[in-house]
Design a protein around this nucleic acid. Structure first.
Lengths: 342, 342
DNA sequence: CAACGTCATGGTAGCGCTACCATTTTCTCT
DNA sequence: AGAGAAAATGGTAGCGCTACCATGACGTTG
């Protein structure tokens, strides 16, 4: 059973309890905890003993109020179930697990309005840093970020005009590379299948289009998109639609790996030979791509590393030495596999 | 003398700025924001106008300090990339998005020690509620939860002895049901393949074992497990191991869907007929299970609903009416598909 | 050796908000 | 109409911590 805590105070030890026990001033305890090198070894030991004995844990709320700065990283992503962002978030968590910083994670559901609301909420906490996915913030969001008074890192993409810092890669180049690969190995009627057409997906599509046009292969009827959230089953359906619309299709570049997997399964089901009849390229290179049969060609992106790098840059900025390179392009890698091995 | 705008405060409007502008006392503003029904409509309107004009956003840190209670839900999960927890977390986020509560998400990495550390950190914030995955907390963690002074919901599993409240289902029954299904449709040499053998996986294994023993089919050599984190590629490898160890295998119950997918792909690759030669059952029923070819039989679990229910119960407890039913079993569902359609 | 830094420590005054009363106003009753 | 209850509002005093300065004890310098 949970026992209710007394209205105020709550009975847990405070910094002055520790100070009293250690026979020092409260401020010295505060310093011993935050900047130990400024307190003599003797006192430090005494204080540590008192802390241990009382089981003292600093109150982050009081700390934040007094110092006008919370030890919190605000992180905004458009989806929590999308593997891609989950990896970025994991990189962020792993990088911060040994630091005093907590993480405040927000889910924008791909909505600019929700992003604004969350930035407002997060900003009110005076976070130590903000990490946001994407570079297409609304003007309001952008202003909120600029006025946040803390380091800001935009992740997943690179672009010309960072609010502060950026870590990511070019989705346009990714889309182009994927498409060029299909063209290079001999596919001609190459479709684009994309779900949840967020700005990143649109840039991949732009890369696809550029490659197709350059090769003189572009045909708008080859493009199948939907704003619906991506999933494997959706990939299957969209591929059927695409094929119905354009029966001569001989390859597809998929928005992401979920879609690609759906396409592969549908090919199995319809006894369409991959890669002979249809070539498939995915995007992100999830673990299962190399295990699938046939294994699926994909653009490997460095999600985990993006998370880590974003934190590293933010921490550097907090520590006062803002990285020289404010835009970090981590690139991507084309993984050629059986699904395009013609 | 006139107080200059302090640099500590950062210059954003405070509750007394609003109070002054609206011509009321600070406490009335506070009330108008938190319990509007206790303030007359007139003042409410005046205050709202002042809030809007100044762009006032309450400082959650000051609020938490003064009220000894932060508007934060602490959420502890063992993994951020595992789809299963991602769904639970999504349910939690969606349920709280319209409430004033923020979410503090912690990743324990399946480590009891890390869980203790995070509970300590979270507890220091005086959260409004705690939601933790699993029922196998260490004694220390359990004590921390009991003394948290807030509602606690254990999710994903049900068990006999809740700290406070519970929402989940029986993994043992799930494992048993999956195995009984394989037996019922005629498989006999049914293997168990399990990665990352956490307590929930172990209970699924226990269910498998119970079913196998009851049918007189149990053989310890049919079991293949590893503590390594689950993935599709690992599923493939483990299936190869299992098959090498036990070539007469005619079915597998997989720890989870990732493993099952790996098994399916390996069957394709090795030209093993599914379901004729080998039957496959997964666990969790991810979207892709029904799309796979052949579609994969799985135990559907209600992850999103678990998250929603946990929040609903916690909110009820916060509001004062603690649910009568402290243990909620959301059950599971066997989805029969082609992979076991003998 | 006076003058001046530097280091280690402590006191004071809030940070922005709300709990806890006190006070005033309005609404019931008899 | 007057007493008492209830509703509406406000004042005060912190919540637990840290920024800012003050203090005293040392060293260092010319």
């Amino acid at each position: 059973m949970i026992k209710p805590r007394s209205r105020r105070g709550g009975g847990r030890p405070t910094i002055s309890d520790v100070a009293r026990k250690a026979g020092v001033g409260a401020i010295t305890v505060s310093r011993a905890l935050r900047e130990p090198e400024r307190v003599s070894l003797d006192l430090r030991r005494q204080i540590q003993a008192a802390v241990d004995e009382l089981g003292y844990v600093p109150d982050p709320n009081a700390r934040a109020l007094a110092s006008a700065r919370a030890e919190v990283f605000g992180v905004l992503v458009p989806s929590l179930t999308n593997n891609v962002f989950a990896e970025v978030v994991r990189g962020i968590y792993d990088s911060l697990s040994d630091s005093p910083f907590r993480i405040q994670l927000g889910n924008t559901h791909y909505s600019g309005l929700e992003e604004e609301r969350l930035l407002q909420v997060f900003g009110s906490q005076r976070p130590a840093a903000l990490i946001v996915a994407g570079i297409d913030q609304t003007p309001t969001s952008r202003k909120l970020l600029e006025n946040a008074g803390c380091p800001v890192v935009q992740v997943m993409e690179t672009g010309p005009d960072p609010v502060d810092m950026m870590v990511g890669f070019s989705h346009l180049d990714g889309g182009r590379t994927a498409t060029e690969h299909l063209i290079e190995v001999g596919y001609r009627r190459i479709g684009f299948i994309g779900a949840r057409m967020d700005p990143r997906s649109r840039r991949r599509l732009a890369g696809y289009r550029a490659a197709m046009e350059k090769a003189g292969l572009f045909d708008p009827r080859l493009i199948t998109t939907t704003p619906v959230l991506s999933s494997v089953s959706l990939g299957r359906e969209m591929f059927r639609d695409a094929l119905a619309k354009m029966p001569t299709l001989d390859g597809v570049f998929c928005n992401n790996d979920d879609i690609a997997l759906g396409v592969l399964f549908e090919c199995h089901r319809a006894a369409i030979d991959v890669p002979k009849t249809i070539g498939i390229v995915g995007f992100n290179d999830l673990d299962m791509m190399q295990v699938a049969f046939p294994s699926i060609t994909s653009i490997r992106t460095h999600r985990y590393e993006i998370g880590r790098r974003a934190v590293a840059m933010a921490l550097a900025a907090i520590a006062g030495d803002r990285p020289e390179q404010r835009i970090v392009d981590l690139g991507f890698e084309l993984k050629r596999r059986e699904s395009t091995a013609r």
